[in-house]
Amino acid sequence: MMAPSASRTAAHTASRDRAAWLLLAPFLALVVVFTLWPLAGAVLLAGQQTFGPGTSRFVGLANFRGVLADPLFWQALQNTIVFTLGSVLIQLPIALALAMLLNQPGLKGRSFFRLVLFSPVMVGVVYVGMIFFVLLQKRTGLINQLLAMLLPSWDINFAWLEHWIMLAMILASLWQYTGFNMVYFLAALQSVPSELQEAARIDGASWWKRFRHVTLPAIIPVGSFVVLLSIIGSFQIFELPFILLQGNAGVDNKGLTIVGYLYQTGFQSGDLGYASALGWVIALVLGVCALAQRVLSARAEAARSTSAPRKAPAPALAPALARQPSGGNP
C-alpha cells in the first residue's frame, strides 16, 4: 500500500527538482559563463607569464613576487591610499554635515537643495574628468583665473594637473560624489530615533553630545557602509586620472593609481599575468576592508537593536521583546 504512494512522492520530488534546476539554469549559465569562468581564468592568469597573444607559461607566484618588489606598484598604492583617505576624510564629513543641514525640520526648498547637490552624480565620471580638465588648466582654467582674481598673489600657472594631481582628483570627486553620499546619510538620519534625540535634549546634552551619543550610533551601520563604498570606489579610481592626465600617469607618476597601473601593465604593455596579479592584490585589500566593515557594523547593529521600537506601538515587537530572557541576551 505504501510503496506506490512513496514512489509517486519520489517522482514528484524529482520532477520538482528538475523544474527548479530548469528555472535556475539561465541564471546559473550567466553566472558560470560571465563570473565563475573569468574568475577562474583570472586565477590561472595571475600565475602565468604571458607574452603576446597565445604565448604563456606558468610561473607560480613570480607575478606576485614581482608586484611586491615593484616600486611603481608601491607608488600607485600610496597614491591610491592618499586619494582614498582624501575622499573618505574630506568628502564624508562634508556629506554628513550637508545631510544634517538638509535634515533640519522646517527647512524650505529641501528637495531643491537635494536635487542640486545630488545632480553631479548623474554626470558620468568621464564628463566630470573633462570638465575639471578644463577648469583646472594653468593660465586658462577657470579655477586659477578665479583664484588669481581673489588672491593677488595666486600663481596663475598653478599646476593642478601636475604636482597637485591628487588634490585635483580629490576635488573633482568631492564635487561629484558628496551629494551622493549625502543622500545615504540623509536616509540614515531618518533612522535616528527622535525620542532619543528629545530625551537627550531634556537631559541637557550639548549639540556635540547629542551627535556623539544619539546621531552617530544610529547612523553607524549606514555610515560604515558608505565608508566601505567610498573606499572601494576610491580604490578603483581610474577614469578620472585617465582623463585628467590624458592617459598618462602624470608628472613623476604622481597620478598613477593602482587600477591605472593595472591598465598600464595589462592593456598598454600587454602583460596580462602581471595585471591579473595586481588585480588580485586590489581584491585582497578591498576584501579586508569589506570584512572590517562587516565586523564593525555587526557590532553597531547589536548595540542598536536595543533601542527598541520607534513611535506607535508596533505589535510585532511585543513578541520579540517577550522572547528576550529577562536575564539578558548576550
Partner: peptide, 30 residues
C-alpha cells in the same frame, strides 16, 4: 533642559552604546 523635568518615553530612549550605569548617569554628565 531648564524646566527641571524628566521624561520617560515609550521606546525607553536609552543610549544604545552606553552601559546601564552610563545611561543613568548621562543627565549628570551633561
Amino acid at each position: 533642559k531648564d524646566r527641571n523635568i524628566a521624561m520617560v518615553f515609550q521606546s525607553y530612549a536609552l543610549y544604545p552604546h552606553l552601559s546601564v550605569l552610563d545611561n543613568i548617569a548621562f543627565p549628570l554628565e551633561a
